[in-house]
Design a protein around this nucleic acid. Structure first.
Lengths: 338, 338
DNA sequence: TCCCCGCGCGCAAGCGTTTGCATTCTGCAG
DNA sequence: CTGCAGAATGCAAACGCTTGCGCGCGGGGA
């Protein structure tokens, strides 16, 4: 592969001149520039980012460390990140955390060895050491999706409390008084926050908290099935249920159907996370759509900001989900329950 | 960030010794090794892949250039690629082709500048020059998903002809005689192949080709809607329809429902591409599931093989989709149509 | 006692750039 | 004619690592 030296030789100049025309970093006589350009063209020269990085100390690349399996919106998120990064002249390197502390450690190490200028990280559960390691080595990082209070890093994720509260309000306005909640896994801050939002929403609607109406502690389709099954056994059956994530929404829908319940009629279901199929099933599912694209772009921007100024205080950006109103909440029915 | 020199100084050895203990590339006295290890630990030294690459000439990284938007199975594919690459000690760099020749050119250039050892590429339509450029610079590449006969590169993608034929056979066996086909966009080889498979399947089932039963030339949900709408206007209505991709399947399902047709009863629908919601809708959709994971892993393996031996003849691997039998084909009905 | 061999290490030359510091040359003011 | 300011370009050091080559030393066979 052609090097600057090859180009320089052909153009009859020194490699420093070649460098300067490539980077437009000092004035070069037009005739010389033309010769160099021609030489570049003829050799098919492509700058060597490796060598460049070695001397400049930067790589113009950012690492993305997250669980490539666990994230349901991975494709959209990656796309947003890549687009924003590319626009700023950065390249994206991937590292799979496998959603485990060990995997996370390895992924971060690998990315650090490649000297990424900064990293986007969705921390694995049970972590801590990796974040410290990150801080120690001073590699700028921003946490994505799983926001935590006890960390002094830039972060971006969905707003959970107000949005879940809004979901409750929506159902309450439609006349529901027995509103259940299928919560996510306990260790996730998002789950806590959504539970909090659920509680808040109940309060605002003048409804009482009933621990019988809260099920969950899972994340999978199956967890949704089991949770709804349990909820349907409580004395005064709920007339509406809010689910904690997309997969559990699907499970709840399935289980409700299996029980012969007409969704939107006998039981209203609204979920967190917009999912591709929400529009396609009958009835279509009302959901809180997370601003995935916006989260990805914001994450990159926060990172680039920090790259420019390492000293400013860490920022936490919470992006509000958007209510996508469809049929499963049963709002378009004329006869509200009870 | 700590360098080998720092480590060497602390351990009281030369940097070459440090290098050799890190890479286990020559015998080092146990006591020395211990001192070096301790020094590494205390400095938090992480090898500098940049510097390493510069001297070794390899980066232990592969580039993935595809449309991050257009690929419906991106998440699974990326995951498979990353996993297989990581297992072999490689890192994945991303490049979005935007599904356009220009975007493709830029993505490939960028990846080349970063000196990836090889690339995985899903060529954009209307391309050609990029592939040539790739060949000229001698960067090993394997084409993913969009296989083409007229190219002398390693390739991997889904098998289309036999699988589509199988879909026709499946419907024919169930008693259908008027089987329609909603084809994909014309410029994709896969579309041609599926159309060919459709034709082949008809032949095998002893059915006649009827151009009225072929609609399409699109890829979106909307295209599916329009295609089915047209098909429902033909004199002798089809009793079954095969769709060319996931989005069009959704469109067809929607349009059929809008016409009051009971899917699986009045009209059988089977689709290409497994989609997340196929299982969730009622009736669930019978599809040909593409072996996405296997495609990704195979792509990486082909690339690594070529990295080891640049001379062998290019291989094309076609992976057969798997029929996921569900309800929308209506096979479980006792009364077959006609 | 002498040689030779093998073990354990260090030296230094690159790898392809960037960039501060010359150096050359031209033209024009003094 | 001398001097000097620019303009245009070249030189060479560094970036952090890998690796071929060579050196010193201690022990065993002759």
């Amino acid at each position: 592969m052609a090097t600057m030296e090859d180009v320089a030789k052909i153009a009859g100049v020194s490699i420093s001149t070649v460098s300067h025309v490539v980077n437009e970093t000092r004035a070069v006589a037009v005739s010389t520039r033309a010769r160099v350009m021609a030489a570049i063209e003829s050799t098919g020269y492509t700058g060597n980012a490796i060598a460049r990085s070695l001397v400049t100390g930067g790589t113009k690349s950012i690492g993305v460390a997250m669980s490539l399996l666990a994230n349901p919106h991975l494709a959209e998120l990656i796309h947003a990140i890549e687009a924003e990064a590319t626009a700023a002249g950065y390249t994206v390197l991937l590292g799979d955390t496998l959603d485990s502390p060990d995997g996370e450690r390895d992924a971060v190490r690998k990315l650090q060895a490649r000297r990424v200028d900064g990293m986007l990280l969705t921390p694995a559960p049970g972590d801590t050491t990796t974040l410290d390691q990150l801080a120690r080595t001073g590699v700028p990082a921003v946490l994505v999706d799983r926001v935590s209070h006890k960390v002094k890093l830039d972060q971006v994720g969905p707003e959970n409390i107000q949005s879940t509260s809004a979901l409750v309000s929506h159902l309450a306005t439609a006349g529901h008084r027995r509103i259940a909640f299928i919560s996510g896994v306990e260790w996730m801050v998002a789950s806590e926050e959504r539970t909090l939002g659920y509680r808040l929403g109940l309060g605002r609607a003048g409804l009482r908290w009933d621990s019988n109406l809260v099920a969950g502690g899972g994340a999978s389709h199956e967890d949704g099935v089991l949770a709804l099954r349990r909820l349907l056994t409580v004395p005064e059956r709920p007339t509406a249920v809010i689910t904690g994530n997309g997969a559990m929404t699907a499970g709840a829908v399935r289980e409700a159907t299996a029980h012969g319940l007409k969704i939107g009629m006998d039981l209203a279901i609204v979920g967190h996370d917009e999912v591709e199929w929400a529009e396609l099933v009958t009835p279509s599912i009302t959901t809180m759509a997370h601003p995935v694209d916006e989260i990805g772009r914001t994450a990159v921007r926060l990172l680039l900001d920090r790259l420019n100024d390492r000293e400013h205080a860490p920022r936490t950006v919470l992006l509000p989900p958007r209510l996508v109103h469809r049929e499963s909440c049963g709002c378009d029915r004329t006869d509200a329950p009870e």
